[in-house]
Simulated scan of single mutants.
Amino acid sequence: VEVDALSEREVVRRVAVALEAGKGGRIVTPNVDICRAVATDPALEELVCTADLVVPDGMPLVWAARLLGTPVPQRVTGADLIWSLSELAARHGWPVYLLGGPPGVARRAAGRLASRHPRLAICGVHAPPYHFDATPEGAARVRRMVVAARPRLVFVGLGFPRQDRLIADLREELPDAWFVGCGAAIAFAAGTVARAPRWMRRAGLEWVFRLAAEPGRLTRRYLVDDLPFAVRLLAGCLATRISRR
């Protein structure tokens, strides 16, 4: 997975320039779990690597880039972009759509975003049922709702790869909009799921905080699947750096 060496501020600037020119795009924020999925599925690799912006959501990716001698400025998360891009949208009057989360969560997130940015125009919120895309009709219904709202910025928090497949389809129908596959960012913005303290995020320990908060859901994902992959990733990057010497 190749990532763009951009800070959060630079991502916002790129999106602003594109929107002002009437051009859309999509942002993927891969973390260790996404990279693990991509490593064994060429279709998912293409889904990630064909995005207009790919920025690392996860400190292991930042560390891996440093080990390879190709550092990135910082970790850029969907949970942060939902706030900074909403601020951008509020300044320019670009309508925003929130898609995802449990029932009521997207609406609550919209309220909190609007309270911080009173000029923010929320043109729609929707929490589709978990298996909405099990049939072509269900997926088409959700796409019609988003298209009808005519957003310029869409946050899609349905988890990878479901959110990114939906975004790829929506890009064809809304070519002048930007889409962010943001995972749990809508729940974070709503305040229904707590984020780790800033020092834990900077130290690469946010996963420990989330594991403690949701052990039933995240234990296997973090400890059985992602942690060994992260170790192999960093070890491989270190070996590559040594071999270059």
Score class of each variant (00 low, 15 high):
A5Y: 10
R9N: 06
V11K: 02
V12E: 02
A16L: 00
A21K: 13
G25M: 12
G25Y: 11
R36V: 03
D41R: 07
P42G: 08
E45R: 15
T50I: 01
A51H: 08
P56E: 12
G58W: 09
R66M: 09
G69P: 09
V72T: 11
P73A: 12
P73K: 13
P73Q: 13
I82P: 02
L85E: 05
S86I: 07
P95A: 07
G101T: 06
P102C: 01
P103E: 11
V105D: 01
A114N: 03
S115G: 09
S115E: 15
R119C: 04
I122L: 14
H126I: 00
H131F: 13
F132L: 04
T135H: 07
A140S: 12
R143L: 09
V146H: 04
V147S: 04
R152L: 13
V156D: 02
G157E: 01
G159I: 00
P161S: 11
D164R: 08
I167T: 08
I167W: 03
A168R: 14
L170E: 05
E172F: 08
E173T: 12
P175R: 11
W178Q: 01
W178H: 01
V180Y: 08
G181N: 10
C182N: 15
F188R: 00
G191H: 02
V193R: 01
M200F: 05
F209R: 03
F209W: 15
F209P: 01
L211S: 05
L211A: 07
A212F: 14
A212S: 14
L227W: 15
P228Y: 08
I242F: 10
